[in-house]
Computed example of a mutant assay.
Amino acid sequence: MQEIERKYLVTSMDFVREATEVIPIDQGYLHAQPPTVRVRLWGEQGFITIKGGSDPSGLAREEYEYEIPLADACSLLELCGSHRLSKVRHLVPYRGHTWEVDIFTGRHEGLVLAEIELSSIGEQYDLPPWVGEEVTGDPRYYNAMLARKQ
């Protein structure tokens, strides 16, 4: 399966009142270089995800995600050591798309990123007023890199 997404810095917290769902996320990386292997607690569910390297544009990559038992996800997160991060995801509908806006906590407090998943690289979409600079393809904003930063 291919994931196509664009990522932006967020300029205001106006999106919070528009969110239809808010989910706490704790995630860690068993392998942080492509292919990355991520373990995630999404609320009360566990997932393991394998992602290939990004294409040259930084927009697309292979992604395989599977739900796993919550107890297994918790145990695997412990194996990630310090390669973890926490955030609160807000699902925000805007003009026919659902934006995923992450407010990072812990050592990345203050970082807020918005992502939009697309069905094709050329798909058109509107930017919400609270979206700023695009950081798609900038490795500084990859979750795997953020999880390794101390």
Rank of each mutant, 00 (worst) to 15 (best):
D102R: 08
E3S: 09
P35R: 08
L85A: 05
D72P: 00
Y142M: 01
K149I: 09
S75D: 14
K51T: 01
P139M: 06
G46V: 07
Q2T: 12
P93V: 08
C80H: 06
T105W: 01
A147F: 01
Q2W: 00
S12Y: 05
S75M: 11
A147I: 01
K51H: 02
H31K: 12
K7Q: 07
I25A: 01
D55E: 13
P56F: 08
R148F: 00
I4Q: 07
V88N: 10
R38Q: 12
E63S: 15
D14T: 10
V88A: 04
E62R: 11
I25W: 01
D102I: 11
I121L: 09
L118V: 13
S119V: 00
W99H: 05
I23C: 07
G137Q: 08
A32G: 09
A147R: 05
L113Q: 10
E109C: 08
H83T: 15
P34M: 01
K149S: 14
L111Q: 01
P128L: 08
P24V: 01
T105L: 13
E133F: 00
V112Q: 04
Q33K: 13
G53K: 02
R140M: 02
V131L: 10
S54Y: 13
K149D: 09
A144C: 09
D102Y: 10
G110H: 02
E123K: 00
G110S: 02
A73E: 04
V112C: 05
K51D: 03
E123P: 02
G58C: 12
W99P: 04
V37E: 03
